[in-house]
C-alpha cells in the first residue's frame, strides 16, 4: 500500500520534511509543496534531509518563491497541479504532514 507523503512547511522552521522522510517506506513518494519547496535549494542545509529519497516538488510553488531550475539540487522531479492530482490518484492514500 503506497503512501503519498505531502509536506507544506519550511524545513528550516519545522521538522515536517525530516519526519515524513523517516516515515517513508519502499514505494512511497514525497511531494513538497508551498514552503516545503525550499528543501530542494542547492547549497541549503536542508537539502541533505531528502538525500536518496524520491522527491517531487510543485512547480508553481517553486516559481512563486523565485527558485529557478539552476538553484535546485539534482534528481528532483517537478510537477504542476495536474501532476499533483496524478500522484494522488496513483497512490493508495495520502498523508499530509501539516
Amino acid at each position: 500500500m503506497s503512501i503519498l507523503h505531502i509536506v507544506n512547511k519550511s524545513p528550516y522552521e519545522r521538522n515536517s520534511v525530516a519526519l515524513a522522510v523517516d516515515y517513508m517506506r519502499d514505494g512511497d513518494t514525497l511531494l513538497l509543496i508551498e514552503d516545503a519547496v525550499y528543501t530542494v535549494m542547492q547549497g541549503g542545509k536542508a537539502a541533505s534531509i531528502i538525500d536518496g529519497q524520491k522527491a517531487i516538488v510543485l512547480g508553481p510553488d517553486l516559481a512563486a518563491r523565485g527558485i529557478a531550475k539552476e538553484k535546485m539540487i539534482d534528481g528532483v522531479e517537478v510537477v504542476d497541479y495536474a501532476g499533483f492530482v496524478d500522484l494522488v490518484e496513483a497512490s493508495d492514500k495520502t498523508q499530509s504532514w501539516l
Binding site: 508553481p60 516559481a63 518563491r65 523565485g66 529557478a68
Partner: peptide, 23 residues
C-alpha cells in the same frame, strides 16, 4: 532573519499559485 531572508529572493513569479506577488 531565518526564513525571512526568502522574502527578498529575486525572480518571484506567483502567476501559478493565484496569489499577489508582493516582492
Amino acid at each position: 532573519v531565518d526564513d525571512g531572508v526568502f522574502q527578498l529572493m529575486k525572480g518571484q513569479d506567483t502567476a501559478g499559485i493565484d496569489m499577489k506577488n508582493f516582492s
